[in-house]
Amino acid sequence: MAIHIGLNRVDPDAYAGWDGALEFCENDALSMREITDSLGYEVQQLLSEDATVGAVFGAIQEAASSLEPGDICVVTYAGHGGQLQDLSADEPDSLDETWNLFDREVLDDEIHVALSAFAEGVRVLVLSDSCNSGTVVRKRAGRSVRARGTPTVIQRAVLAKHRGLYETIRAKTPSREDVGVDASVILISGCQDDQSSMEVDGHGVFTAALLEVWNDGGFRGDYPELHHAILGRMPPDQEPNYLTIGGPLKDFEEQVPFSIDALTGNDPGPEGGTADTAPGEKVKLYQIVELSPEELEDLKLHRDDDMEGPNPRGPHNDHGVHHDHDYGGAHHDHDHTNPGGQHTHSHPQ
């Protein structure tokens, strides 16, 4: 299942008169939806006024109650990030990081509690193109670049106007230390906590880099390699973060990103090329192993190997002969019409 959230604006009544206008967050959500649509996900899309607290947490709860071990949930968020004064003294920096949904900000602890509803063995990927910055618009390379961060003055005004609301939410929400997450969760966010996620020319800078790396499914690395490749395309003042929490993560991290069937990464395709696979179609993956000289010698086929008898390593003569054989279900054939030259062996398993 996939949940794609994108807000180009928020409700001014909930943000002390500020509408949080952005240009490309909805576009980011739609582009991320194209990826999950192409792979066969069941998708929910929540844009601007539809991205309320009730709708977002309702969608996450629906996914958590539906998915079983081995399943995957992708959650993408594009919008403003914020930092509210910590009202419970459990944050080292005295700030709660937030997502700015349409009708209010949601605390990082609320998101953590929502993730705790997923069962052990479920994979959860969270991609957040947002920031925690007080700067709204910058100039970069002659272009206006807008930051996806709530200005400090707005954060103060929101807390002054709605302090009772956020104190109640904070009091009712367990801290991260008190709630365990059993699912395997990978978070890749658009920047570090003290940086700004920017948007320009149709996308968030982070989402644009992700889409470039993904290359319509041409990327066949794993999650750390995805993060590293994105990082290499980012400006020096915006470094995407990589964070893991929850249950066993090694197998999840080694998979091709967004894979529903848990395909392992690092599939270069035939002869190091790119695997040309239709969306949703399974591909055969090949594992390269290193063998000792003795192991190699033991595996060699010799002229006196009997490939057609009950003992495939017994005597036979294959000069100029096309033959096939079965090694315990691993069927393959050899064409030895040129026994003295090069020939290929196809081993589907």
Rank of each mutant, 00 (worst) to 15 (best):
R123D: 13
P348V: 04
E308W: 09
M234L: 03
Q155Y: 07
T344S: 07
E167H: 10
R220L: 08
H302F: 15
N27E: 09
G82R: 02
A78F: 02
L291Y: 12
G202C: 05
D326R: 03
S184F: 04
G272N: 03
K161I: 10
E68P: 01
E34M: 11
G314A: 07
V53L: 06
G6E: 05
D216F: 08
S144M: 09
D267F: 08
D201K: 04
S66E: 15
D13E: 12
H332D: 03
Y223A: 01
P293W: 13
A2G: 06
L115T: 07
A114Y: 07
S128P: 00
A117W: 06
R313I: 14
V145T: 06
D237S: 01
P268T: 10
G217C: 03
A171S: 11
A262S: 12
N8D: 14
A29I: 10
E225S: 13
D305A: 13
Y41Q: 07
G20K: 09
V145P: 00
A330V: 15
N8M: 11
P12S: 00
A117T: 09
R138Q: 10
V289D: 10
V213C: 02
D90G: 01
Q349V: 15
G272W: 09
R140K: 08
Q85I: 14
D182M: 08
Y286P: 00
E68Q: 15
V122T: 02
R140N: 05
L231C: 03
V43A: 08
S133P: 00
L125A: 08
I154S: 02
A119R: 06
